[in-house]
Design a protein around this nucleic acid. Structure first.
Lengths: 324, 324
DNA sequence: CTGAAAGCGCTTACAG
DNA sequence: CTGAAAGCGCTTACAG
C-alpha cells in the first residue's frame, strides 16, 4: 500500500500538519522534531502524492506541451529544450499532439481542462488557435513557439526569419552570385513569407518556385527549371529537406555544387552535415527556443510578468561546402 | 472560477452522486434526469478535474515515459507511436528524460512516486535499471523498449537485431561480396553484439572495428583501414550515422560506392534516404515499437495479462543505391 | 512551536 | 432511480 502523510505522522508521533510543514519548509518547526520527521520519511520512503498536493494547492506543478508532430526533424531539439527547463524547475511535462486533425483537437481541449496543468507550451498552433484563444482568455497561461504567424495575444518565442533570409542572400552575393533561385515552403506560413522578403531585400529575384518543404518538391523544382532552360547560379531553399532535393537534382543533372550552383538551406537539421556536399544553411536555435518558451511559461506561473513582445532568438548562417 | 461537480449538481437540481453517475455511465439514471444533467454540463462547460478524479479513484489515467534523450534521430518515431496509442485510449503522457546522469535519475525517481502515473514506458534503461527494478517490484507496471539488453523481469518490446544483421550479410553475399568490414556500435550494447553475431552467422569475418555510433568514428575507421592497406569490398555499419561517415571517407578516398565497396547501415533514419548514394539499411520499426509498448502497458493497466516473453517486431532490409 | 478541522473536487459503498 | 456521507491524501487558516 501507498505510504501517506498520515503514516508518517503516526510513526513520528506528530500531526499531519507538522509533517506537511517539514516537507514544505513552511513555518517554524522545532529542530529535533523536524529531524525525527525527516528520518521517518526516509525510513518509510514516503513521497507526497502529487495528485493530492495538486488538489489541495490548486496547482499541478505540471505544464502541458502541444505539438503538431513529433517526427519533424527539429522537434526533438525543441522538446529537449522544454523538458530540460521544466524538469530543472521540478515540474512535470504532459505531452499532447494534434496530428489527427479536429478529432485530436477536441480530445485535447477536453484534456486541457481535465488535466489541469498549470500552463501550456504550444508549437505552431495552426489549427488549434481558436481553442487556444478561448483557453488563454479563460486564464490558462500559454506560450507559443511559432515561426509561422504572429499572434500578439500570446507571449511567444520566435526566430529571425527575415534576417535569416537576408543573411543567406548576403552570403551568396558576397560569393558573386547574381541569379538566385528560391524554393519556398508553403506560402501561408508566416516564416516562409519572411524568409523570402528578407532574401529579396538583399538579392532581388523573380525566380521563385512555390515549394512545400518536401525533398520531392525541391528536386522537381530544379529538374523542371533546368529542363525548361532557365539558368541560375545559386539556390536558397526554405528548409534543409527541400535543399537536399535540390542537391540531388543538381547532381543528377551534372551540375557541380558549389562551382556551378551554390546551395543554401534553412534549419540546420542533423542531416545538413551529411548531404553531399554538406549543406550551408541558416541555423535555427531550436533547442534554445524550447528553453526560452519554457522559461517564459515558468516565470509567468511564478507570477513574474512576461515581456510584452515576442522573445526573439537569432538565426545564424552555418557555412559548409555547398556554398562556401 | 473553476466549474465543479457541485455547481453542476446545484444547477441541475440533483446530487453530486447523480452527476458522477451520468458522467461515468455508472448505474441506472432516469433518462430525463441524465438529459438535464448533460445539458447543464454543456452549458457550464464543466470538465472533471483529473486531479480530483485521480485522487478519488486511485489512478491517474496517465502514463509516464522515460527516455535517455529526445534528440536521437529515431526517438521522434518512438515517441509518436507511444503518444498516438496513449491518446487514443484517453490517457495522458508524462515525459521524462535522464540525460543528466544520476542527478536526473534521482529527480525522476522522486517524481515517479509523486506523479503517480499508472504505468511507465522506458526506452533503453541503461543506468536507471536498479531504480526501475525497485519501482517495478513495488507494483508500478513498466514496459521496456529496449534493443540493448535483456531484462526478463520486465515486459518489453524488442526488434530482431540478430536477424537484421543476418539479412545485411545475406544481401551482401548475394551481391558477391566476400570481404566485409563491420563497424560496430558500443560493445556493451546488447543490440551491437546481436547485430554482429547475426552478420557473422552468414558472412564470417574478422575485420571488425569497434565504433561508437558516431559519424566521426565511421569515417576514421575507414580512413585508417585504407591507409594501412587493408582491403574490403563492403561495409556493414551498426547504425546509419556511422554509415554516413563511412560513405564520406570512401568518397574522399576515391572509392566508388557501390561499385568498389557496398555499404549497409542500420536504423533507417530519415537521413538514410539523403546520403550520397542513398543508403541501403536495416529498417527498425521504431514507431510500431512505440505503439506496441504503449499497447502492452495499457492492457496491463486494464487488467489483461501481458505475454510472457518480449514482443518481437521484425527489422526489414531497405535496399537503396549504396548496396543494390 | 504544534494540532484539530475544514476544504480541495471527485467517487463509491450504503441506504432508501 | 437517487442522495447523504465518508474517504482519497494533501494544505492551510485558525487557535492555542
Amino acid at each position: 500500500m501507498r505510504v501517506t502523510i498520515a503514516d508518517v505522522a503516526r510513526e513520528a508521533g506528530v500531526s499531519k500538519t507538522t509533517v506537511s510543514r517539514v516537507i514544505n519548509f513552511k513555518g517554524e518547526v522545532d529542530g529535533s522534531t523536524a529531524e525525527r520527521v525527516r528520518e521517518v520519511i526516509a525510513d518509510l520512503g514516503y513521497v507526497p502524492s502529487s495528485g493530492a498536493v495538486g488538489l489541495a494547492r490548486g496547482s499541478s506543478r505540471t505544464v502541458g506541451m502541444l505539438v503538431p508532430s513529433l517526427t519533424w526533424p527539429w522537434m526533438g531539439e525543441v522538446l529537449q529544450g522544454v523538458v530540460d527547463t521544466v524538469e530543472a524547475a521540478d515540474y512535470g511535462l504532459l505531452l499532447f499532439t494534434c496530428n489527427r486533425g479536429s478529432e485530436s483537437v477536441e480530445r485535447f481541449t477536453t484534456q486541457v481542462s481535465a488535466r489541469a496543468f498549470d500552463g501550456l507550451v504550444v508549437v505552431e498552433p495552426e489549427n488549434t488557435l481558436d481553442q487556444l484563444t478561448v483557453l488563454h482568455r479563460s486564464g490558462l497561461p500559454i506560450v507559443l513557439i511559432d515561426d509561422r504567424g504572429h499572434h500578439p495575444e500570446f507571449p511567444s518565442v520566435v526566430t529571425t526569419n527575415h534576417e535569416g533570409g537576408a543573411s543567406a542572400a548576403r552570403h551568396l552575393r558576397a560569393a558573386g552570385r547574381t541569379r538566385p533561385l528560391v524554393v519556398t515552403g508553403p506560402e501561408h506560413f508566416g516564416c516562409v513569407r519572411e524568409r523570402l522578403a528578407g532574401f529579396r531585400s538583399v538579392l532581388p529575384t523573380e525566380l521563385v518556385v512555390d515549394g512545400d518543404f518536401t525533398e520531392r518538391r525541391g528536386r522537381l523544382a530544379v529538374e523542371e527549371l533546368l529542363a525548361s532552360g532557365v539558368e541560375f547560379d545559386s539556390v536558397f531553399a526554405h528548409n534543409d529537406i527541400s535543399a537536399a532535393g535540390v542537391l540531388r537534382a543538381l547532381r543528377a543533372a551534372g551540375r557541380r555544387v558549389p562551382e556551378d550552383i551554390a546551395v543554401v538551406g534553412f534549419d540546420d537539421i542533423p542531416m545538413a552535415e551529411h548531404t553531399e556536399p554538406p549543406l550551408t544553411t541558416v541555423h535555427q536555435p531550436t533547442r534554445q527556443m524550447g528553453e526560452a518558451a519554457a522559461r517564459l511559461l515558468l516565470s509567468r506561473l511564478g507570477g513574474t510578468a512576461v515581456p510584452d513582445g515576442p522573445v526573439v532568438l537569432p538565426t545564424e548562417l552555418v557555412v559548409r561546402r555547398s556554398a562556401p
